[in-house]
Amino acid sequence: MIKRITYGVIFGSVLIITGVVFLCVFIVFPDKLQEVLTEKEPVFICGTSNPPQKSAKGIEIMSTNCAACHKVNGDLGNGALKGIDKNYSAAFLMGYINNEDSLIKTNNNIVKRLHKKYGENDYKHKNEFTKGEIESLISYIVFYQNNRK
């Protein structure tokens, strides 16, 4: 009999605690819950706004993988990406961004010119981006360059 009462008290306590937690989540903190449940807008680096939908993934890729070394705009120089859409084909960029070493091994003339002009360093691009992700990245870079404040 005492075991039944003890289990009843424990079960009742768990129900009360659960109810209080839900009450806090849904009534006391509705803004926080709404913030957690809603999808966040992409964070635009460097003050850009309203990029095309195609660029959304490019913003993420740029800010998490590229921005430490590369400038999206500015004078051409080491790390500058100004005009990449005009100067290089999408096929070249795909190969260069995903596996620079393979282009170096094949003695690719464009890579040789880049290394001659900007110098070589120990970092070689080696990523696994899809064609769509690279197109999104290029779309973002072009959008940013054309809409820079």
Rank of each mutant, 00 (worst) to 15 (best):
E41T: 11
K149T: 05
I110K: 10
N147K: 06
Y88D: 03
N108F: 04
N121A: 09
Q145L: 02
S49C: 02
I134P: 00
N98L: 08
K40L: 09
I61H: 00
A80Y: 01
K32R: 14
S49R: 12
E128D: 10
E39L: 13
F22D: 09
L76R: 14
I84S: 03
Y118R: 09
L33I: 12
V20M: 14
K82C: 01
I97W: 00
V72R: 06
P42N: 08
G8N: 03
R4H: 09
H70M: 05
D31C: 01
D85A: 09
G132I: 06
R113N: 08
R4F: 07
K124L: 10
A67D: 08
Y123H: 13
F29R: 15
V9G: 01
L114A: 02
G74F: 02
I84R: 09
I59T: 10
C69D: 08
N121Q: 11
F143E: 05
N127H: 09
R4G: 07
L23F: 15
H70L: 03
K54G: 06
L81C: 02
A90S: 10
V9N: 08
N73W: 10
K32N: 14
Q53C: 02
N50E: 10
I27T: 11
L76F: 04
M1A: 10
F26M: 07
P52N: 08
Q145W: 01
I5M: 04
I17Q: 07
N73G: 05
N107G: 03
C46H: 14
S55L: 08
D122R: 14
T18P: 01
K105R: 14
D85H: 12
P42Q: 13
M1W: 09
V25N: 08
S89T: 15
D85Q: 13
E133V: 04
S136F: 03
K40G: 03
R148I: 13
S63C: 08
N65V: 05
A56K: 15
M62D: 01
G12S: 07
K112L: 09
N99H: 06
I59G: 01
Y7F: 05
Q53H: 06
E120L: 07
V142N: 10
N50L: 05
K112C: 01
I45W: 12
E128T: 10
S49Q: 13
V43E: 15
F92N: 04
K126Y: 02
C24G: 11
C46D: 15
G74V: 02
M1L: 11
V36A: 07
E35M: 12
Y96L: 05
V28W: 14
L23W: 15
I2H: 11
Q34R: 15
A90E: 15
M62I: 04
K105E: 14
V25Y: 05
N98T: 07
I141H: 00
V111I: 11
N50R: 04
F29H: 12
L15Y: 04
K71L: 06
I141V: 10
A80K: 07
I110Y: 00
V142A: 08
D85N: 14
I27G: 01
S55C: 12
F22P: 02
D75F: 01
A67I: 14
E60A: 01
H70W: 04
I27L: 11
N127P: 00
S102G: 00
G74E: 09
G95L: 04
